[in-house]
């Protein structure tokens, strides 16, 4: 019997959080101003999921990682120049919009179709990873819908820890109210894991890993299927940024306690 996990990570690009993000109405509906030319990064929640996936794959021989992304092909290619250096994975790109204004159901459909088309994917060993939230859209539903479409019923959200016992049982810690964790155990895959931040640091870039990944990434990008994802039939009454929350301060040498104190003081008004 083959061992290890088949880990599929769903995640795509979002505008660099440092950029000024200004809602705008374009010819195809709501968008961010200059969205197509803003620098982008891998959605931070999805990035955590990828690092956790790579860590798990390294721990369990025979495991394999796929990263499935819906986004504009050219921009995904640019994104891979960083992301591909972080961990070994196979890339499954889908050429479509990564806008935060897309209907999650449409994005989930594109993702589920792409995952369904991965050759040699063993669903009995499948761990479907992704962010439980997103820097561009915080509805937190896309991953659950993908799981539903793939027929996976075990769903865990806001996960910070996943461990495997000697007999193969999977334990998970999910964030719940009040800073507590919900502890769950699961006999075996398949399951959906929507990651919070996990506990792993961002791996350093390693161009050698990147070069190895790029051998499969470039052909995959060239063959990426085009999909139409958007928000057809949805009308946005109003789109605006919470201005107060966009006030960015750059500080240095400030202890964690002081930062926490300032946040508490701000919340209390």
């Amino acid at each position: 019997m083959e061992s290890g996990y088949h880990i599929v990570v769903c995640g795509s690009l979002v505008p660099d959080p440092l950029q000024t993000l200004e809602p705008d109405v374009g010819p195809k509906g709501p968008a961010l101003k200059n969205e197509m030319v803003l620098p982008s990064v891998l959605d931070p929640w999805a990035a955590h999921a990828l690092y956790e996936a790579a860590h798990l794959a390294k721990e369990y021989a025979g495991s394999k990682v796929w990263l499935v992304s819906v986004g504009p092909k050219q921009r995904l290619q640019q994104l891979m120049m960083t992301v591909a250096q972080k961990a070994p994975f196979s890339f499954v790109p889908v050429d479509g919009s990564a806008s935060g204004f897309c209907d999650p159901f449409e994005t989930a459909t594109a993702l589920a179709n792409a995952i369904g088309a991965i050759p040699d994917l063993d669903r009995s060993r499948l761990l479907l990873f992704g962010g439980y939230a997103s820097a561009s859209r915080d509805a937190g539903v896309t991953l659950q819908v993908v799981g539903e479409m793939l027929g996976i019923t075990e769903v865990f959200l806001a996960v910070d820890s996943l461990s495997v016992s000697e007999n193969g049982e999977i334990s998970l810690l999910e964030r719940v109210e009040g800073g507590n964790y919900l502890f769950s155990e699961c006999d075996c895959p398949p399951l959906v894991v929507g990651w919070a931040t996990g506990h792993l640091p961002e791996p350093p870039n390693n161009p050698q890993i990147g070069m190895a990944n790029m051998r499969s990434i470039m052909p995959a990008l060239q063959k990426a299927p085009q999909v139409q994802v958007g928000a057809e039939g949805v009308s946005f009454a109003k789109v605006e940024l919470p201005q107060q929350q966009r006030t960015t301060r750059i500080v240095k040498d400030v202890p964690v306690e002081q930062i926490a104190g300032e946040i508490v003081a701000w919340i209390r008004g």
Binding site: V37, P39, Q74, Q78, M81, T82, A84, Q85, P204, N205, N206, P207, G210, M211, M214, M218
Partner: peptide, 23 residues
């Protein structure tokens, strides 16, 4: 951004260099 620089400085087809830059 990087896309512009890669064209200007002629390394848009050199992924090894693009990765090196990011690294």
């Amino acid at each position: 951004g990087d896309e512009i620089r890669q064209v200007q400085w002629r390394f848009s087809d050199r992924f090894d260099l693009q990765m090196l830059v990011q690294s």
